[in-house]
Design a protein around this nucleic acid. Sequence first.
DNA 1: CGTCTAATTGAAGCATCTCAACATGCGTGG
DNA 2: CCACGCATGTTGAGATGCTTCAATTAGACG
Lengths: 246, 246
Amino acid sequence: MPISLVRKLEQFTSLSDPERRALQTAPMRVRDVPARSDLIAEGDCPGDVSLLSEGFACRYKLLGDGRRQIMAFLIPGDICDLRAFLLGRMDHAVAALSRCQVLHIPHQTLFEIIEKHPRIGFALWRDTMLDGAIYRQWLTNVGRRSAYQRIAHLLCEIWWRLQAVGRTRGDSYELPVTQTDIGDAMGLSVVHVNRTLQQLRADGLISLRSNVVVVLNWRQLQDAGEFDPAYLQLQPQLTPVQRTDV
Amino acid sequence: MPISLVRKLEQFTSLSDPERRALQTAPMRVRDVPARSDLIAEGDCPGDVSLLSEGFACRYKLLGDGRRQIMAFLIPGDICDLRAFLLGRMDHAVAALSRCQVLHIPHQTLFEIIEKHPRIGFALWRDTMLDGAIYRQWLTNVGRRSAYQRIAHLLCEIWWRLQAVGRTRGDSYELPVTQTDIGDAMGLSVVHVNRTLQQLRADGLISLRSNVVVVLNWRQLQDAGEFDPAYLQLQPQLTPVQRTDV
DNA sequence: CGTCTAATTGAAGCATCTCAACATGCGTGG
DNA sequence: CCACGCATGTTGAGATGCTTCAATTAGACG
């Protein structure tokens, strides 16, 4: 089921009935976006916030010579442009990697909800802070780890994040992303990503075919990437009931 | 003059008299910290927020093999551990690079101020969002730029940030940081940092001696790093009057 | 089936790293 | 005020992880 703002926020905070109602009754536009198109361009000043409710997207910047750096992968439940709500202009672009569904909430509406329900403001602020934690991990990855370690870490991170929104099936998940995308995210060339993935496969850590990742050896994959999920601030474990959307 | 919380927030938002008063009358502890010591360790759950009012610090993580990644440089006016205010446990450490002075505000106090003055909450949230913008730039640096470009970009960024808090003297500023620190921040070895700095000097872009950076050729330095200060969200220009602290 | 994108492979080059000295500067105790 | 000692900066040389270029193969889709 697509992800709502209520569900998004309840990942981190429990909401009261009035809070939940305020979010549910808010006017909201749904938009479908084709794969490989920009959701938001660098420099945009959107007038509403978009929540990714289905699909895979990324934040990226283009460099002078045309190369690209992907700075984040966005999965269902992630907010694309909270930045513009607070700071106006977007300093980076957001692109759909697969077909996406996006929920739009006018800034004005969101602002009024936060004014009336400050805990929702805190929950969103917390979410911004969590993004920071992910950026720091990525910096560590790109700055100090080998290609092998980086990709291992990335594959772990994505599993955990998808797991929190019910988008995994056991040890496997769909990753609708090209090797070029992985390279642009981890600061590597496609060629090297390709060879590194082959290594990960040869070592029996993962399988990856037609955009489906299967983790075959959790222990080794986590160790390789020095991955510790603590920074993702996930609940100890969501029960199936909590996972049911509102 | 050391930087207060009022001054910090007024970089981005103008405050009303009651808001300013609430911040000024808040109980606050001042602490002096020697260079090269940890302000906050990874895993800490501090009970108050620390604002760096004097000195230079950094956020960092240690890797399994002992290598270090610095994820941010903190300058006067930066908040060290807002993360713990929202998410509890620190996912990284903060170390003083020079001698530092830190202002401590109990979480409880800050929380009450925000409850009473929601705009202060927004201002702090905005600050968190701005940190995100800096992380994204660093990711782009480390992921896709050469050593020469990275360091050029870094030296520009620091000048602009210091300038906003009145810590520059014309085109020069003090950077109490070793070449090892720069390497750990930009994902480079000390040796290569050293050679790259020599190149920047040889090309006449900068001078750097005993921790003093002088930008000799702005145009070339900015071009080299593809630096555009827009992401730092600085006021068009602070007048000397606005710069006067409260 | 042809077309287009993504994945794969080989080979050569280079930016950056590692190791290992050596130089310099600065704070401190004598 | 000098001399020692340690942190920091500098240099040389060899090694390598990753890149680039240039094909080739495999899949997906109308």
